[in-house]
Structures are given as C-alpha cells and as structure tokens.
Write a protein that binds this DNA or RNA. Structure first.
Lengths: 355, 355
DNA sequence: TCATACCGCTTAATCGTTTTCGTATTTCCA
DNA sequence: TGGAAATACGAAAACGATTAAGCGGTATGA
C-alpha cells in the first residue's frame, strides 16, 4: 500500500521498467520478462526483479502496453437510450451490473462507447471503439436499426448483442417467446378468458412477444378481439394509463391486462384505481421484466421476471471467450429463460360466461 | 462512413499517420501538425493532409497519443456498492447518467474503476487509476471510510466526490440539511405534530439529515419522543416494514412517518396497509430521493426530490475543470438543492390534541 | 548591408513496453 | 575433451503519436 507521494506540482512519479532495470542492474528486456513471468531468465533474477518492482511501487503503463500488444483489457459497452440512457432503466442497469462484475472478475475494465460525437477525429461508434482499442464491445441497449450500429458489428471487433440478432454475431437473448407464453398460460390457468395485451413500441423484442401472445392464445383457444391489443411505448406510464382507459371503456372489457413492462403496469394501476376498480378483485394486471419495486408494492405485481443476472453474465463470458479464443468460440445465440413471478395482481376467477 | 474492411484474420487496417505521410509526400510530423491544427505549416498543405486523412479513414490511436501526452480523455468512476453495485440504485444511476452525458459532451469517456482485484499488477484503486491513466476520477458511491479510498483521494489525481467531504478535495453534495428541513417543515405545515423518522444506516448523509431533523423539530417546537426515531438500512423494505410496525404499535403512534428513502417508504406502505390503515387518511408517509416510480404509484409519494441531473452535471463539470485548469479551479464544495415533491401521501390534518 | 524574424517543413528524440534475435556462458554427453 | 544444446541475459527495433530543434529561403528593419 506504500506509494510514492506526488513530487511535481503536476503529477507524480510513475516508476517504469527502466527505473527497475537500473535498480537491479539488468536490462529492461529482462525486467519485462520477469514481470511477465516468462521463463528464459534465471529464477533468482526473476524473484529479485519482482521484489524490487513491488518495493518501488511499480505498475504497468496501460497505454504503452496497449500500443505494443494491441490488447487493452478494456471492453466497450454501448448503452444508448433516446431519452435518458439505459442506465436509468432497471432491466438494462441490472444486466450491466452483472456484466460489469463478470468481466472485472476476469481482469477487464468497462468503458462506455461514447455516444456523443464530439471526440476529436472519431465520428462513429466503430471509429471510437477502434480508437480506444476495445478488445470487444457489448451492444446492450441502442437503436439496432441504425446504419452506424451495422457498421460497428461488421467492423471486425468481437461483438455480443443483447436481445437482438444480427447475422453471424453472437447474441444473448431473453426468451420472450417462452416468457410471454408462460405468462399468458399462467393467467389463463387462473381462469381468465378475456385477456388484453398492451404491447410496446416496435422492436424485435416486441415482435417476439406479440407473436407469442397470438400463438399462445390460439393454442389455448382464447379469442382475442382486435381492440384488446393496444400499443403504448415502453415505460410510458401515461401511455399505459390511456390505453388502459380505452380498454376499460370497452363494452366487454378484459378481465386481465398484460403490460409491456412493469413500469407501464403502474400506469395501468392508476387508471384502474381512478375508475374505482380494485386489483385484482375487479380486474387483473400483469407486467413484464420483474423490476425490484414490483415485489415491494401492494398488491405485488405478477410479472415475467427476466434473469438479468444470467443475461449479463452470459454476455460477459461470451464476449471474453470471443476475445481470448476467437478460433474456437462458436458464433451462437444464447437464450435465457425468465419465469413468472406470482404476485397478487392476478386473481383466480371462476370462468363464468365464455366470450 | 467508408472504412477499410478487415484484411487479416485477426484484425483490420489501422491507418496511421505514417500512411498518410507517404500518401501526401510529407513527414509524419507535418501530418501530426495538420491534424492537430497547429499553424506552423502551410494552409494548403494542411487542407490536403486533412482531406487525405479523411479519405483514408484515419483516426488517432488513443494508446499512442496517451503514451506521449499523458492525457487519456478518460475519466474513472468509482461505483462500488456492497450488494449490487450502485448501478441498480436509482439515485446513483441517474447521477451517473447525467455525469456521463456531461463529460461525453466534452469529449471524455467514462470507465469504471475496477473494484475487482484481479487486474495484473494493479492491486488498489489508485494503482488501477494511474495504470489506466485516468485524467480524473469521480467517486460517486463507495465506502468512503476505507483506507484505499483515502489513498486514492491523496494520490494526486483530480478527484470529485459525491455526497462526502474530504479535506482539500472537491465535492458535490445534495443539501441534506436543507432538504430534511424543508421536508419536515412541509409536513409540519400540513398540520402534523407527531412525526417519526426512520433514518438510514450511519453515514455522513445520514448524520446530516438526522441532525437537521432534530434541529428543525426544535425550531418548529415539535417534541419528538425517542421511540419515534428508528433505524433501518437504506433501501431495505423489510427493515422499513418492521420499523413501521414498531411505530404503529406505540401507544401514541405518529401521524406521519419519514423514511430514509422512497424504496423504504414502500416497505412502510405495506406495513400500513397490512394494518388496515389508509394512506394518507389514517397516517401520512414521506420518502426521500424522488425516484421515478414514486410519481407513478397511487397514492403518489410525497418525497424530497434530489436533483440528480444537476448533481451529475456539476460533478462532471468540476472534474473537467480540475483537469483542464488545475491552477485556477477552486477546491470547493458545491451544494445542490432538492425540493419537496408534493404527492398525495401526506394529508392535511387539523391539529387536534397537542402531544 | 547585415542581423533578425518568420515560414514551411524535416529530423530525431521520446513516451513505456514487448519481442526477436544474437551472444556469452554453462551443462551435458559421447 | 570437444562440440552440441540449453540457459540467461542484452541490444535494438518496433508500436503510433508529439514536439523541440533545426534549416534553408524570403521578407523586414535599422
């Protein structure tokens, strides 16, 4: 823990291999070899050098190492949401958290891929990533349809995407098809026949869930009137509120409403309470994601909990594998299962009149 | 947007100044000057070089630049919460988000200070930061009392802390003293005389709020029985639940409970509802932080909303100022005001019987 | 007329590492 | 004991950028 105190006004001593080499009376080459634990130097010399390095408080200059080896031990994370960044989004934040712990454990650092265009020279994601020398990039949260992203995934840097498929690119996906199927089946088994689904704005995730919803409904023999399908952007409580109102105004309102996400479900809560209805006695509600707060409010929200811990871990592991064993790492899509979190927002109903 | 395709199996062409220099028939030095817009070269030459650089898809090698200039245009963020990292904590996530946008706007990147100890050679925060060559470090969320942190703030790197004061170190603080005063005054003006406060685990933030609570209570002429003061760790809904139960069991229960944070307040909600009491009709509740969800549930939570946008922005601006103008930047503490968000969880009561 | 200043460019050193290749010393075995 | 092989180390060339110093040539001023 002993480190040299700052010496100059501006900086501090950065002890280099050169310093160690003179202290030990050997060449820098030998120091390098000792510190990197190569075995073409004497055992005793190696020990001495390492000890002196320790004493002098040596640590490597990442920039120099990087310049020479083309390895940065740094991975980029693309995290670019329109309004706020994905950081403030529970789902992504938890995934990132898990990803961070995974790669840090293996000695890598995480840097955000800069989404601002001010960086001198670098005008695109790809340029920024190459410029910084990222060993790999995790694309977690962004507009996957922008040409810049396409350029990035084709740029030759190891890439793993979350919840989106590109040709010939590793991906980790939450199983939205199975998830929606499980969720709808769950409410069906609770006796609900009239189930509405407010889905999020268009994306591959939305498409998976929506088509799974239809397929599962058909499988279960549920008829879903067109007006039971509404759209409201993800995490837009106001939109969800309004969509809910529309549903409640229907001649035959649904007995259960599925929301694009937990946040939106709370928007639904509000609409429902405003109408003087009770959850789940009068109407049932289910969310998607399984954000923490959903388990801590009353009634606890029934929702499809996505395994963010596993998602982040897999993104990290796949990315590091791609970096360290490019030849032997399969380009594949890893699928992570979620599971229904059984809260109290979905009631058991006796199936009374069929629709 | 035209970039060279990958050539080798392993990598891609990284066009360097050398390449440009041969293409233009000048020396690398001239290229460097042209690209850095220095003015000791001819205008026409500069134009030509820049154009060719553009055409060839040149962008600078950060590692090389860094090695030479000792500037990384990269700032570290220390974000180290015990259980999950602070990423999953609304308050910190929003601050980080704002910080990120602020520094990226100015051409800096953000890298997490690695909290795992596996990085070759670097065994402490300070070593990690120096090794990576961070131009500065924002300490947002960590155990401020660990010796490693102390070593870091004394290490000579520009530092800004959030919500914690070190001697001679820039800090940005949410005004917890004023915040608590405003909040307590608010509920007092609503007519509450019996106000309980469940405070968080010990920290400088907790101390500020707690002492402000006492002082304000005294100022307002409120008598706070000892048993009205409870402790429950931050964001621990279970702890808050139990503390709330204790308060409700008192002979003279409070008419209003203040919580350490919004999350905890939801724990309180549960306890209160379980007792068959209604918020705010039977008992009032206020949180602290102003997380998003607080505005989207029913009843909306009255809380002290901290200005995370401003906090993050100031941390970023101060840090960059410290980096770019070390001589002229004051070492000071910036204080950011919060404000009471008036939800529906605190009722107006007619002051009936004085305690 | 000569010293000086500026212009536009090049040369070369340098940042801290890694890595190849060469060489001197030792070891080993026939 | 001779020679090949193994061992332990050093010299030097990169990696890609920045920057001080230098150098001819022209313009300026006293």
């Amino acid at each position: 823990m002993v480190l040299p105190e700052p010496m100059t006004e501006e900086g501090w001593i950065m002890v280099s291999m050169k310093d160690i080499s003179v202290a030990c009376g050997v060449s820098v080459a030998t120091v390098s070899k000792a510190l990197n634990d190569q075995n073409d130097i004497g055992k005793e010399t190696k020990r001495r050098i390492c000890q002196v390095a320790e004493e002098m408080g040596y640590f490597p200059n990442t920039a120099a190492k990087m310049l020479k080896t083309n390895r940065s031990y740094n991975v980029g994370v693309l995290f670019n949401h329109e309004d706020y960044s994905g950081l403030t989004h529970d789902y992504y934040a938890f995934v990132l958290d898990s990803l961070k712990r995974t790669v840090e454990e293996k000695g890598y650092d995480i840097t955000f891929v800069n989404t601002s265009k001010r960086r001198a020279g670098a005008t695109s994601y790809l340029e920024h990533c190459r410029s910084r020398g990222f060993d790999g990039v995790a694309i977690v949260c962004t507009d996957f349809y922008s040409p810049e992203i396409l350029q990035l995934v084709r740029g030759g840097i190891p890439i793993v995407t979350l919840d989106h498929l590109f040709n010939n690119v590793c991906a980790v996906m939450s199983n939205n098809v199975q998830g929606m199927q499980d969720l709808l089946t769950y409410v069906y088994k609770k006796g609900h026949q009239r189930v509405a689904y407010i889905h999020g704005a268009d994306s591959s995730v939305t498409q998976s869930r929506l088509s799974s919803f239809y397929r599962t409904a058909a499988m279960l023999g549920l008829t879903i009137p067109d007006e039971y399908i509404q759209m409201s952007p993800y995490r837009d409580t106001k939109g969800a509120y309004e969509a809910t109102m529309k549903l409640l105004d229907l001649e035959k309102p649904p007995t259960c409403i599925l929301y694009p996400d937990d946040f939106s479900a709370f928007g639904g809560f509000n609409a429902i309470q405003e109408r003087g209805l009770r959850i789940p006695d009068d109407i049932s509600v289910a969310g998607y994601d399984g954000i923490r707060i959903a388990r801590h409010i009353e009634p606890t929200l029934t929702t499809l909990r996505q395994d963010t811990e596993e998602l982040g871990r897999l993104v990290g592991e796949k990315l590091l594998s791609l970096i360290e064993h490019p030849k032997t790492t399969l380009v594949e899509t890893l699928v992570v299962e979620g599971h229904v979190f059984e809260g109290k927002s979905v009631a058991s109903v006796r199936s009374t009149s069929k629709t």
